[in-house]
Nucleic acid binder design. Structure first.
Length: 426
RNA sequence: GGAGAGAUGGCUGAGUGGUUGAAAGCACCGGUCUCGAAAACCGGCAUAUCCGCAAGGGUAUCCAGGGUUCGAAUCCCUGUCUCUCCGCCA
């Protein structure tokens, strides 16, 4: 969530930034008025509480000295009632502010290109070449069928469409990819591996700003008020909820593999073939907590860590800098990585690397204790960044399609062979 | 699922209605001492929010939410979590 103080002190700035994202400023106006009413009441309430506390001390003193305190007690009874009624009104405005704040996205960073839709995103990097085939390449569905490695029909039988079943060398290849990515991030890129729960409670989902705004996109277990995580970002972020991390430990970097679950409500029939859009997929997630002044550098690092995986796998990709209109809710700046799928003849989004600045950490209360030389405020909110490093489903599409042979067999990329134990899928 | 115990500051841990934001110890920071360090001694050491240029002051917070009371860390209710025992079970 945004800082209420920023809205209070500089509402026009906030509205301007939100307009870049296509948000009108009406929610900000509602917050401003609720906030000023709340503050006025808060001052009244605190003044009365000061009186109450003082008189209570006096009553204690009188009682100790065996004096009659009944007048003071009678007076305080009405003061307490007044406090109670004012506090109820404060609570009302708190709720109004809270509800409004939950609908307002993060402000885009000044370097984010202005734009309205995904068409305005800017390609900032391209790596690798399209493969030139001397035969007609087929798509991953055909390859999956020919090699008996993916079985979408049976996955659908077990659960429903969009829940893929991997078989034989397909399952092993998936596992190899995950292990390769985790090993790279832990051994080369300095991340600490975690394996988190894949169900998260409401508080955790709210801290990650996934709920209430996107509640319909989540698989939800009502009996226990738990959500299947749409990304390990949720659970990894919440590792340090309500904590203060010492500056010496920063940056704190985690990578973790989990399955991810997305209902993809509203996108039925859109790119739903095979792995293109699934409800359950596997992903190695990167999360970094760092000092605010370092977060944009860290964003570039994380982008490079994700790209490094694709380069090792020799998969052609491009990086898009998302425009203001296409940014995720919590992101101030975001890069998408798209992989080239030879059979689909299309770019597929395989990763998204975002700097969420203090938007999540504010609600999650993830702070750091500053070096004593860093000014008078001793604690501050950390910046939280997350990135896919990477999601396997679309990566798998690009991987098998790019490495196919005329007989539909698939060559396993060099770096994965020590994980798969075989060099070819046929 | 059944029975019981508990949740206090970075940690350990006192505190069962009134100068308790909270004893004490440890840890940490600064100082004295020392060639330097240790030890000893002295001092400091929560978070958030409001007012204020600042100095400073107010308020809130002893798991969370309600309640009783002039007054709650302390009493009552509900919830969450942790631990122990029993049952069941991967």
């Amino acid at each position: 969530m945004l800082d209420i103080k920023l809205i209070r002190e500089n509402p026009e700035f906030v509205k301007e930034k939100l307009q870049l994202r296509g948000e009108d400023g009406t929610a900000i106006q509602r917050i401003e008025s609720a906030d000023s009413e709340r503050l006025a009441l808060l001052k009244q309430s605190e003044k009365l509480k000061e009186t109450k506390n003082k008189v209570s001390d006096e009553i204690a003193l009188m009682k100790r000295n065996k004096l009659d305190a009944s007048d003071a007690i009678a007076k305080m009874k009405s003061v307490s009632e007044e406090i109670k009624s004012i506090d109820e009104r404060i609570k009302h405005f708190d709720d109004v502010i809270e509800t409004e704040l939950q609908t307002i996205p993060n402000l885009p960073h000044e370097t984010v290109p202005a734009g309205k839709t995904a068409d305005d995103n800017i390609v900032i990097r391209e790596w690798g070449e399209a493969r030139s085939f001397d035969f007609e390449p087929v798509d991953h569905l055909e390859l999956g069928k020919q090699n008996n490695i993916f079985d979408f029909e049976r996955g659908a039988k077990i659960t429903g469409s969009g829940f893929p079943l991997y078989k034989g060398k397909g399952a092993i290849l998936e596992r190899a990819l995950i292990n390769f990515m985790l090993d790279t991030h832990t051994q080369k890129n300095g991340y600490t591996e975690v394996y988190t729960p894949i169900l998260a409670n409401r508080t955790s989902m709210e801290a990650a700003e996934k709920v209430p705004k996107f509640e319909e996109d989540m698989y939800y277990i009502g009996q226990d008020d738990l959500f299947a995580i749409p990304t390990a970002e949720v659970t990894i972020l919440n590792i340090h909820r309500d904590e203060i991390i010492n500056h010496e430990a920063l940056p704190v970097k985690y990578c973790g593999f989990t399955s991810c679950f997305r209902r993809e409500a509203g996108s039925y029939g859109k790119d739903t073939r095979g792995f293109l859009r699934v409800h359950q997929f596997n992903k190695v997630e990167l999360v970094s907590f760092c000092k605010p002044e370092e977060s944009y550098l860290e964003l570039e690092n994380m982008l490079n860590h994700a790209c490094g995986i694709l380069e090792a796998l020799k998969i052609r990709y491009r990086v898009l800098e998302l425009c203001t209109g296409d940014l995720g809710f919590a992101a101030a700046k975001c890069y998408d990585i798209e992989v080239w799928a030879e059979g689909e003849e299309n770019w597929l989004e395989a990763s998204s690397v975002s700097n969420c600045t203090d938007f999540q950490t504010r609600r999650a209360k993830i702070r750091y204790r500053k070096d004593q030389t860093e000014g008078k405020s001793r604690t501050g909110l950390l910046h939280a960044l997350n990135g896919s490093g990477l999601a396997t489903s679309r990566l798998m599409v690009a991987l098998v399609e790019a490495n196919q042979n005329p007989d539909h067999s698939i060559n396993v990329p060099e770096v994965l062979r020590k994980y798969t134990g075989f060099e070819i899928i046929n």
